[in-house]
Design a binder for these strands. Sequence first.
DNA 1: CTTTCTGCAAACGCTTTGCACATTC
DNA 2: GAATGTGCAAAGCGTTTGCAGAAAG
Lengths: 176, 176
Amino acid sequence: MLLPLARRRSPSQTPVNHDAIRRRFESFLKTQGLKMTAQRERIFERAFETHDHFSAETLYDWMREEGGPNVSRATVYRTLNLLEDGGFIGSFDTGRGEVVYEHLLGHPHHDHLICVECGRIVEFREERIEALQEDVAERNGFELTSHTLRLMGVCGDCRAATAGGGASETKASARS
Amino acid sequence: MLLPLARRRSPSQTPVNHDAIRRRFESFLKTQGLKMTAQRERIFERAFETHDHFSAETLYDWMREEGGPNVSRATVYRTLNLLEDGGFIGSFDTGRGEVVYEHLLGHPHHDHLICVECGRIVEFREERIEALQEDVAERNGFELTSHTLRLMGVCGDCRAATAGGGASETKASARS
DNA sequence: CTTTCTGCAAACGCTTTGCACATTC
DNA sequence: GAATGTGCAAAGCGTTTGCAGAAAG
């Protein structure tokens, strides 16, 4: 099981200090009395390598496609929950049913625009909305712990494809 | 809980013209080549009677508890989807997993504050957030079709209960 | 060596579906 | 009567879990 050595760390796209994050994961495991295993390492690394959002099933596919220590579906689910509990990744569902994850460290809070045609996810951050949310919560006596803002719509590409006469290529799952 | 006969139509809380909505449902069925059945009627009525949010399973329970034509679980799910497709009800998930419905007609758009302690759902509407969402979408080339904004936090009651020394009564499911 | 993991496959909870019978139009 | 709807139970789907063998500390 040769793990591809220099996969992480491509100098151009290291979002935050990769080693720092990794050390954080190791100490998290330690404090929880958990062990570092080849599987956990693979899953952790893969999750932090991607800037995309991914589902448990997708990550499982990656685990099988890409070489490395065998990782079972159960372990993928278990580790994803572990990472979420540890605050390393966050999850939200895109519309109906599908839950996707994204890594959080070195990734300031943001919300999502989701294309209902092609499923593309765009992240955005709008301070004024954030502030207004606090406002609303306060006015209603709530102390905010988190929030989810999902904007669903049709992205520029899909609008062009539809309008221009071109067929829609990407898997269109317009449901609801 | 003997079902109160004149439940709907209590003059004080009829949100919109009930008959108008109902006619709309009937014509919706007609245009779709669908039939009005006792089951669909019961489900439709029940959904519009409630101001609360409910899950498919909850509605199914209601169907069994309250008297009336028998309604199977399958029909509940089928009809809920039908009503959603027709734009009569909307659905969103409260946090993780649980999908709840709410009727839409005569119920202007709003978003939700959800108490992570007791599950209480408070509706709110904040025009400025709405406007900013349009803004964000436009800036990113999206044409908005819908959105979901869920604010999670601890409601005043629960904060009081926790702080004041009282134990938390309501089922606390603080997960994530 | 003790404790925690992993893989497997079975269990789960919620939702959907296939089919024969019942109902509406 | 022809077409659609319903109930039932079985099938699906994504996720979790129990258990025995495998690793980590």
